[in-house]
Design a protein around this nucleic acid. Structure first.
Lengths: 264, 264
DNA sequence: CGCAGAGTTGATACCAGTCAACAAAAGTGG
DNA sequence: CCACTTTTGTTGACTGGTATCAACTCTGCG
């Protein structure tokens, strides 16, 4: 019932402590954020968790971590690169459900039924850590703190899904796009990148399918934001020049100094 | 650490077994579906769970189970009536995130941060069972099966959220409305009602805010479905006349025998 | 009976989807 | 390394669906 050694509170000079520190740093550094970073995970939890995680594995661009219909085997944590999860609808076209940057969990969609309902595709060359779900669950059953943390992480995913809904309900395309850019830059910053200059890992088409817009509308939206001096775009390279304006556009008040065409 | 008596496998003639049977029926009958109904919950789990649940409590129409910003205290299970969860956006108007029929869990939105981000409003006279979250979590920590089940339920909520996204991405209003009606009738049937005749607990305005449409568009959509002979509408009373046509409209092929006006 | 809330229906304007042409970047093979 | 192809992104013209404004109906209720 307890295949993992219990190492609750070790004296600071215990030789095993060094390993734990190393592991902790490993998790912190490798952006295993959603599972390891937050407070509340003690040394023993971390050690057991590390024992569960299969180490980094490379993933080629375009490769899939799992397909729709696959049985839930593992959860994945992005390490490098980016992923998208897509749902192929009955009528053939694919709906983008989400993007996953380093440190974010992938595969939670199978929690409800035990089967994946969407596919996770690498948008770039990437790497992941693999977490066999059964083992994670059994460790969580032994470590209330980890269980709590797991619930919290899934709850956060629920929040993100609601944010996605919040974007789609916005009727103006400009608002959705601003909201999207704002969210992505925020997450890129959280994953350790710059929040003002970023290279989008996904195509305009992916963004369009994520926002429920036509590809061309996304492109026009980007151009318009550039005209207004909010961002600078060059293909997938985006610089955010006026973050507060972006935020303003995202939440409600559409284009305060708009109607430029009337003046010019 | 174990405030609840352990009653693992009781002999079938043990007097306590009767109580368990009563409780099990109680949960099954009262539509506590999402927490109690599915397989995998044994007698002891059920007993401990019942011990956690605060019994039925009436909720007046318009009353809120919690407000945005409230600390996560309890989860709720709808017993009678219906609820909506709404998110009040920065710019004032409210976005409907979901509807909750009897047997469905309410309050999971606070799992991520420990604070509710939306409000749960009773659409009709209603009643709920209240489940203090801390106690539920601590019981789950002792009962791996319950923990698993809890994860599954939350996973299913995630699926529903994705389905919501799936509706919003459909660009034609008609598709969204058909998808909505299809989903609601399905859930009403699951909660023990008829799947062909139902009384919607929510207003056109609520539906509109849920689907990201204008109120008038929803009304027109209902009328159009009636013209096409798919449903019969009279205010909130809806009869589904042609379920397969509804399904067809929901998934892709917009209005096969449409353009009736051209003929008439 | 009149009032208020909810729902329906009509006329109009506009945003965004569609079709299409073009430009730029990224592969691909000689 | 350069021509060629393919993919990806941008921009324009046009159309259509839906938001908006507004009038009207219906229901329940004091």
């Amino acid at each position: 019932m307890a295949p993992w050694p219990v190492m609750d509170t070790l004296p600071s000079n215990d030789p095993r402590r060094l390993d734990l520190e190393r592991l902790r740093r490993s998790c912190a550094r490798c952006s295993l954020q959603e599972l390891c970073r937050p407070a509340g995970i003690g040394a023993d939890e971390l050690a057991r968790l590390e024992d569960v995680v299969r180490r980094r594995r490379p993933v080629a661009r375009g490769e899939r971590l799992f397909h729709a219909g696959d049985a839930l085997g593992s959860l994945y944590v992005g390490r490098e690169g980016a992923f998208k999860t897509v749902l192929v609808t009955e009528d053939g076209d694919e709906q983008v459900l989400g993007f996953h940057l380093p440190g974010e969990l992938i595969g939670l969609d199978a929690l409800g039924s035990g089967q994946h309902r969407c596919e996770a595709v690498a948008l770039t060359e990437a790497s992941v850590c693999e977490v066999p779900y059964e083992r994670l669950a059994s460790v969580a059953a032994q470590l209330p703190q980890l269980q709590q943390h797991l619930l919290r992480v899934i709850g956060q995913r629920l929040e993100r899904e609601q944010d996605h809904v919040g974007m789609l309900v916005r009727r103006q395309a400009g608002e959705r796009i601003a909201l999207f850019l704002h969210g992505v830059s925020h997450r890129v910053a959280q994953a350790g990148g710059s929040d003002t200059s970023l290279v989008l890992p996904m195509s305009r088409d992916d963004i369009a399918r994520f926002l429920g817009l036509a590809l061309e509308t996304v492109s026009r939206g980007f151009s318009r934001l550039q005209e207004e001096g909010v961002i600078r775009v060059s293909g997938r390279r985006v610089e955010i020049l006026d973050a507060s304006a972006l935020e303003r556009l995202a939440h409600g008040s559409e284009a305060a100094p708009a109607r430029r065409r009337d003046i010019a």
